[in-house]
Computed example of a mutant assay.
Amino acid sequence: MTEIRTRRLLLRDWQESDLAPWAAMNADPEVREHLGPLLTPEQATASARRFQADLARDGFGFWAVEVRDTGEFIGFAGLDRVDPGMPFTGVEAGWRLARAAWGHGYATEAARAVLAFGFDTIGLAEILAVTTATNLRSQAVMGRLGMTTDPADDFDDPSVPAGPLRRSVLYRKRPDR
């Protein structure tokens, strides 16, 4: 199982002790603001189990993120294949952190490490990132990562019901070589 270490963070496989804070994160309306309905504890656990299976199968996926100094679980970051039915294909970077972890630069730090893994270890030619048009915090992270967007790539996510979360923006990054 691949682990990724940054100066402050450890991206690692999921542990049983992550499930309760993961469920709490996904029951937080602010964390879920741009993601859709709150998750039940059972739904949150099922998603963590899927992340574990993806990591075991592919060698990449959504790693649990912990703060190295404290061992505190703060969310996830990683890479995922774009779901079928989307208007594009490829591998997408993603992250989700507990509200208490916002504003510390953790999302950018974790995502930067994920991009390096995708380009340097997997050999990806491009990594995508997607968020709702209203999620300015995630878009700011994408910008700090050097990802770019083209309004012509904006789309209505077919997996999201009609409403304010359906309009999405697509960011792209190629390796810095």
Score class of each variant (00 low, 15 high):
residue 116 A to N: 04
residue 54 D to N: 05
residue 142 M to V: 05
residue 118 G to I: 10
residue 107 A to K: 10
residue 109 E to G: 05
residue 74 I to T: 02
residue 13 D to M: 12
residue 140 A to E: 05
residue 24 A to I: 06
residue 55 L to R: 09
residue 113 A to W: 09
residue 85 G to A: 10
residue 168 S to H: 10
residue 147 M to I: 09
residue 17 S to C: 12
residue 10 L to T: 06
residue 90 G to D: 09
residue 17 S to L: 14
residue 163 G to P: 00
residue 47 S to H: 07
residue 106 Y to E: 04
residue 20 A to G: 00
residue 97 L to D: 02
residue 25 M to A: 15
residue 3 E to I: 07
residue 29 P to G: 05
residue 139 Q to N: 03
residue 14 W to H: 13
residue 98 A to L: 06
residue 173 K to D: 04
residue 98 A to Y: 09
residue 57 R to L: 07
residue 149 T to G: 02
residue 8 R to P: 00
residue 62 F to S: 08
residue 36 G to V: 15
residue 106 Y to I: 08
residue 122 I to S: 10
residue 123 G to L: 12
residue 84 P to E: 13
residue 96 R to G: 02
residue 36 G to K: 07
residue 50 R to G: 02
residue 102 W to V: 11
residue 134 T to L: 11
residue 6 T to V: 11
residue 66 E to I: 09
residue 170 L to M: 11
residue 166 R to Q: 15
residue 16 E to T: 12
residue 129 A to H: 08
residue 48 A to M: 08
residue 72 E to A: 14
residue 104 H to Y: 12
residue 137 R to M: 14
residue 116 A to V: 07
residue 77 A to I: 05
residue 176 D to I: 04
residue 97 L to H: 03
residue 51 F to Q: 02
residue 46 A to D: 03
residue 44 A to Q: 13
residue 65 V to D: 02
residue 81 R to F: 03
residue 14 W to Q: 13
residue 55 L to A: 07
residue 100 A to F: 13
residue 15 Q to E: 08
residue 109 E to L: 11
residue 29 P to D: 03
residue 126 E to M: 09
residue 175 P to I: 00
residue 65 V to R: 00
residue 11 L to E: 14
residue 30 E to G: 00
residue 124 L to S: 05
residue 44 A to L: 13
residue 49 R to G: 03
